[in-house]
Design a protein around this nucleic acid. Structure first.
Length: 216
DNA sequence: GGCGTCAGGCTCCTTACCTCA
DNA sequence: TTTGAGGTAAGGAGCCTGACG
């Protein structure tokens, strides 16, 4: 619940950084440096926080560093701001509020692309970090693409089914035409032989010849 | 102008967390 | 109460592009 996130006390025991492993798998491999003990009970007591939760190695890209710092310096006067910085104390799953999501959705419907100005404006407007807005748009695009892929798959599946049916029908038709042709050619052979007087008449063949002729 | 480097964007895949049946 | 599935925020790798020296 977002409401519960208000005083979420994720106790990050980061003293020394040796024993504290907030992210069970991947983060273990990173040079995580945790300088502060996060012990925030309410947003307005948040000011002393000073955490490098990304723990980027030297020489690696640090494209989000400004935004993280931004987050650490934010005034925390309402729930959504606290929400935006919740994972400073570890990888805490945060949930955007309904209002935040619906506003982002609205913006996405208007224009799925996100330029830096729009990103920062939205972030400010919704009390989120620019990175969060960026991630939301990325995931939203991915969802759209997935839905589209599913829809395309359904269309192709239907198309495939109808083509298979058509294929079966045509095969049957070919089969019938072949059998009719064989029937006709054998009956003409019979009449030729009868003319020559070299064959005895078969009543069943005669009968089938007449029915075939009726059908044509 | 060509080249190397860097920053920032994107997609894709994956992980971790949360919710709900 | 537990558990598994589904949804989703976020991390990371790899690629591309534009700016800059």
């Amino acid at each position: 619940m977002e409401e519960d996130g208000y005083c979420d006390t994720k106790l990050g025991l980061g003293l020394g950084g040796e024993s504290y492993v907030p992210w069970p798998q991947k983060q273990k491999e990173k040079p995580v440096v945790r300088l502060d003990l996060s012990f925030t009970l309410c947003p307005d007591q948040h000011d002393s926080m000073n955490i490098d939760y990304h723990g980027k190695a030297e020489g690696t890209r640090s494209k989000y560093s400004d935004e993280d710092e931004e987050c650490g310096n934010k005034k925390r006067s309402d729930r959504s701001i606290d929400n935006s910085c919740m994972y400073d104390t570890g990888r805490k799953k945060l949930r955007l509020t309904k209002d935040q999501s619906s506003y982002l959705e609205e913006c996405f419907q208007r224009h799925p692309a996100l330029n830096p100005a729009k990103k920062h404006a939205l972030a400010e407007q919704l009390n989120l970090k620019p990175r969060q807005v960026e991630v939301w748009f990325q995931n939203r695009r991915a969802r759209t693409k997935l839905k589209q892929t599913e829809a395309d798959f359904e269309v192709l599946k239907k198309c495939c089914e109808s083509l298979s049916n058509e294929n079966r029908r045509l095969k049957r038709e070919v089969q019938e035409l072949r059998s009719q042709k064989i029937g006709r050619s054998s009956s003409s052979l019979h009449s030729q032989l009868a003319k020559d007087g070299t064959a005895t008449k078969c009543p069943s063949c005669e009968e089938s010849t007449t029915t075939d002729q009726k059908n044509w």
